[in-house]
Measured scan of single mutants.
Amino acid sequence: MATGGRRGAAAAPLLVAVAALLLGAAGHLYPGEVCPGMDIRNNLTRLHELENCSVIEGHLQILLMFKTRPEDFRDLSFPKLIMITDYLLLFRVYGLESLKDLFPNLTVIRGSRLFFNYALVIFEMVHLKELGLYNLMNITRGSVRIEKNNELCYLATIDWSRILDSVEDNYIVLNKDDNEECGDICPGTAKGKTNCPATVINGQFVERCWTHSHCQKVCPTICKSHGCTAEGLCCHSECLGNCSQPDDPTKCVACRNFYLDGRCVETCPPPYYHFQDWRCVNFSFCQDLHHKCKNSRRQGCHQYVIHNNKCIPECPSGYTMNSSNLLCTPCLGPCPKVCHLLEGEKTIDSVTSAQELRGCTVINGSLIINIRGGNNLAAELEANLGLIEEISGYLKIRRSYALVSLSFFRKLRLIRGETLEIGNYSFYALDNQNLRQLWDWSKHNLTITQGKLFFHYNPKLCLSEIHKMEEVSGTKGRQERNDIALKTNGDQASCENELLKFSYIRTSFDKI
């Protein structure tokens, strides 16, 4: 039985969820670079991206490699990797027998973001014989899940209580170790020597080791999670996991709180800001991140802002960003909400898709409305799209047979046209069989910064309504002859009103 693990408890099935942008060198404390989270699957090609990484700022997932063999891993080693800020997950990587050479110096898994409450997941690794993470000293947050690894031993010899604050939620089941077939031998045991430290858990006094050649490092209890030197002297209180010299914040392997210019500090002093819960960055760093993602459509890219001495992905609820200094300031009234469309555009074809934009005031991208039916549609669209004030790209209304009016965009005031449909149009209306009105132009103002209007096959939309939009939106004169079809717009509506004058002759039985 794995020490510190839980057996036999019912657990939810383990679901495996399925960018080499360097964020800056980590400095003297770390020998390499800070790398983003990685999802490495199918083959070993991307694994080489770990070569210079000291910190993975995010998670590391290595999974679904069915053609790899043990010899493929023999020359692979990433000794610079010290810390993973989120979680480490391995799933069905064939041929991998140990992690001792792959990650010989991995010391800390912070667990800032977890995989279903777990910071370390080893699942269905069919050839893994031992973990071998002999320098792993601290899992700051989260638990361990090690399950269905039929060859995995050296679990009962690990004292997880020396690595985690609590072992109650560890789930370590259905491994070879369960069948008591392992016969784990710690260093020196074969020669009758006791080389590794022994600890007591559940009444068992057991030597602690990761492999037959690597003991588990056990520091004096007084050192807590700070770690200790090879001689057993406690590291500085700002260290986490390990250090090369005692009581020196510049000799830590990793930091308990924050890293700044080669030393570990309790908090980031001005003019620095907390970033990702582990390091200090200056304003320029946060500003660069903001600008890199301002026009990016890459998933996970955030326009970072500053709030409460932190550089964070977005302002919290009730705050909006001051564009001059990136500071989050309290909103006066309802907060603006910028919604970034991942692929640059979004099609609204149902109430469900409209709900995804609920509360958005600025759309960074283009909207395509293609709704053919739905219950209580006008009210639903207004509830979900009615706060949109600005669209950076274009607005396209296409084959939306259920629409009679666009009044559900009740606050839309600006279409920038930074991206144009077919390279020309910022407003595009095609084949809307029941569209009769755009907006009530006596109450609604709309500016279209650039781009043209396109109207074709809107049989109940009168040309007068379209011409009014040209005047109000500032697009009059931009359109070419064929942009607004004269014969297919309003051709099934009563669009022309003329005053009919009647004269009559009164007659009676005795007068003409």
Rank of each mutant, 00 (worst) to 15 (best):
K310L: 11
N242T: 07
D184V: 05
P220R: 04
N308Q: 12
D277T: 07
L76M: 13
T267R: 04
S161C: 14
T229R: 08
N257V: 01
L260I: 12
L128P: 00
I62V: 06
S317T: 11
N179A: 10
C286H: 03
F275G: 03
A198P: 10
Q287T: 09
L76T: 02
T250K: 07
C182F: 07
N325A: 15
G232L: 03
L44S: 07
S296Y: 12
F205Q: 03
A156M: 13
V55L: 05
A119K: 00
P313S: 08
P79T: 05
Y154I: 05
K224Y: 13
P334N: 08
D86G: 10
T157C: 08
F66I: 14
P36H: 03
E49G: 11
A230Q: 14
P334Q: 14
S317H: 04
S296A: 12
E130I: 05
C335V: 04
F123G: 04
Q303N: 08
T199P: 09
W278H: 05
I56Y: 00
K67Q: 00
T229F: 01
D101L: 14
N105M: 04
L120Q: 00
S244P: 04
K310A: 11
C215G: 03
D86C: 00
L326Y: 14
S237P: 09
D184W: 07
Q276I: 03
D247N: 02
E314T: 15
Y273I: 05
G37F: 06
E238M: 09
T45Q: 02
Q287P: 08
V34Y: 04
A156Q: 11
D177Q: 07
R110C: 10
I146C: 04
R141Y: 04
A156R: 10
F115L: 08
M38S: 03
P336H: 13
I122L: 11
H59L: 01
G58L: 00
H290M: 11
N42R: 11
P246G: 10
M137N: 11
L174N: 14
G241D: 01
L64W: 01
C335A: 05
D277Q: 12
P334R: 15
L102M: 14
N43Q: 08
M137R: 10
L60K: 00
L29R: 15
G111R: 00
H127M: 04
C209H: 02
W278S: 08
C153H: 02
L81Q: 00
P316K: 09
G203V: 10
P104A: 01
P271E: 09
F275T: 04
C234L: 01
L120M: 11
T189N: 05
E231K: 01
H214G: 05
E57N: 07
D247P: 02
L120R: 01
V108C: 03
Q216M: 08
F275I: 05
I146Q: 02
F205I: 05
A156D: 01
S54Q: 11
P187L: 08
G318V: 03
C331E: 02
N322L: 13
L152T: 02
C53N: 00
K310H: 07
P104Y: 00
G32A: 15
T329V: 06
C153P: 00
P269E: 06
I62E: 01
H290W: 15
E130T: 06
N170K: 06
L120N: 00
T199C: 08
E57R: 07
L81C: 01
Y118F: 09
C252Q: 00
P336R: 05
I82Q: 06
F116W: 09
T211R: 04
P246T: 07
D39C: 10
Q245M: 13
G203L: 07
K310D: 08
C286Y: 04
R208P: 06
C335S: 05
P79F: 05
R297P: 10
V265A: 08
S54V: 03
C228S: 03
P79M: 04
P270S: 08
S296L: 12
V121H: 10
L174P: 14
L88M: 05
G192M: 11
S98P: 01
C186F: 03
L164M: 08
D248E: 04
Q276F: 14
K224I: 09
C209V: 02
L155F: 07
C209F: 02
H226E: 06
L152V: 11
F73S: 02
F258L: 10
I163F: 11
N150M: 04
H291V: 05
T85R: 12
C268I: 00
E57T: 06
E181L: 15
E168G: 03
D277R: 07
V173C: 15
M38L: 10
I109Y: 00
D247T: 04
D75G: 03
A230I: 05
S161W: 05
T140G: 06
N179R: 12
R162Q: 14
C268V: 00
D261A: 05
D288K: 05
H214R: 04
L133P: 01
Q61F: 08
D184Y: 06
E168R: 05
G32Q: 13
E57C: 05
D288R: 10
R162W: 15
L332G: 15
F285A: 15
K176W: 08
D288Y: 10
T194H: 09
E57P: 00
I306L: 10
G227V: 06
P271C: 06
D177R: 07
H226K: 08
V218R: 07
H291P: 02
D247Y: 13
R263T: 10
I158M: 07
T320I: 05
R110N: 04
L174C: 07
